[in-house]
Design a protein around this nucleic acid. Sequence first.
DNA 1: CGCCTGTTTGAGAAGACTCAAAACGGGTGG
DNA 2: CCACCCGTTTTGAGTCTTCTCAAACAGGCG
Lengths: 260, 260
Amino acid sequence: MAGPAGLRRSAFTQRLTRYMPLTPGERDAIERLERRERRVAAGTRVITEGAENNALYIVQHGWLHSATSLKSGSRQITGFHYAGDLVGISSIAWSIAAATLTTIEDCILFEIAKEELGRVFAAQPRLAGLLYAIAAAEGVAANDRLTSVGRMGADTRLATLLLDMLARLRASAGGVIDSFELPLTQTDIGDAAGLTKVHVNRTLRSMEERGWIERHGKRLRIKDERKLSGEVGFVDRYSEVATDWLPPPPNVPQGVLETA
Amino acid sequence: MAGPAGLRRSAFTQRLTRYMPLTPGERDAIERLERRERRVAAGTRVITEGAENNALYIVQHGWLHSATSLKSGSRQITGFHYAGDLVGISSIAWSIAAATLTTIEDCILFEIAKEELGRVFAAQPRLAGLLYAIAAAEGVAANDRLTSVGRMGADTRLATLLLDMLARLRASAGGVIDSFELPLTQTDIGDAAGLTKVHVNRTLRSMEERGWIERHGKRLRIKDERKLSGEVGFVDRYSEVATDWLPPPPNVPQGVLETA
DNA sequence: CGCCTGTTTGAGAAGACTCAAAACGGGTGG
DNA sequence: CCACCCGTTTTGAGTCTTCTCAAACAGGCG
């Protein structure tokens, strides 16, 4: 139950703090959400499409993806989730899961019952607003993905996918990185980008030849992120979120805001 | 400023009431959001991608769409908006608009400053939760669109698009309908489905020949919605939203909930 | 009536897919 | 330590869907 020594900082708190300083009350509220820890091995289905589900999860560590499958047998990966993300939000709208949530690596999750989130909305309106803003940002990111799949060729599409991963890893890990371990098969990548595994292979290869990326085993390096972002029109939606419109937090004595 | 006689029922209230009965306080809070009415002619840009924007809009009447445009000159329509929708939510996350919002028909909108929404979050947590749930549902609908564009052929893709429109019109208009006016050009449809206008034309034509749809001018009829939904695997995400997890409304004297 | 936008049709090209098989790599058991 | 096995990556060849370019057609409006 206890993690590897004392490095159990809440990734979720850390993420939210990126966007605005939290009051002690808000930190407390989040901490209370993180009581049910689940360690899940790579490749496990945490939520199954079509099955009953009334829980949400905070990702403390590891990667996951959500996917829906079609009658034709094919599959669409609709999103990847990283440390600090709140996932399974669709269970807020329905008791039957709309997508399958699968761990890509070994993960540490915190399970949250819907009602607990309800209590946060009641007690911490400013936090609720921030969650809403983050949901809005994710909606825009989803639209970016739609645009990429609907209107771009294979190479641009894969480039935006990789740039998006880089940006999100940065948002959760923090710090500057230009390469990362890609724990996905080319089939997975294809299911996310709307391409065949064969075509993913050829396209990655040609991206490498053109000098966009470098690959060594599972490790992937974006050679010139700024230039590539410009060329394919990628915009990082996670680097910041407006918080100026949020209501003031309840009962804040002056000067207790922490900046993390 | 006053509309056509007394039929100014709030479409937004009506929509929310579909999901849960509202307290008088909640109705009141919504009403206060609907003070700045804007009548906008068809084809007007309400929000422009890349420009500063700090407002949200409630759609009281009419259709709109949001779209992003690429450097290549092509465009992706990321969503359609109907009476009762809250649009421009992305402005909650950033001051610079991520998409262009355009009226398809003459529309009546209510403009809302971000801060007003913040006040609603503070005063009406249950309402805030419902908005969050609706945002979650819209996120899932966006993923459905992604799945359709990423993994389906042209005919299935167009079918899901039309079925989605039908479902959403039903969610806002209420009642049973199997046909509707489609105020879009085939170019627009293509931009939404990720297809060329030429291919949209051929595909619609073949759908008509196969007996999936009927067209008379701008009017479009889905001939057997249930069967078609089954064949293409369409799921209506708007018919209901779970509200059981929401916190109780503030200060509710027993028995005043309206069911509208 | 002529114009303009949108729809329809045709023909050829391109991108992505399918099917198939070979090469690779990491892990396991002998 | 090696041989084998399985999942994954890579390559090849041919096909099909969708796109591009181009032009004809239709309908509503001034």
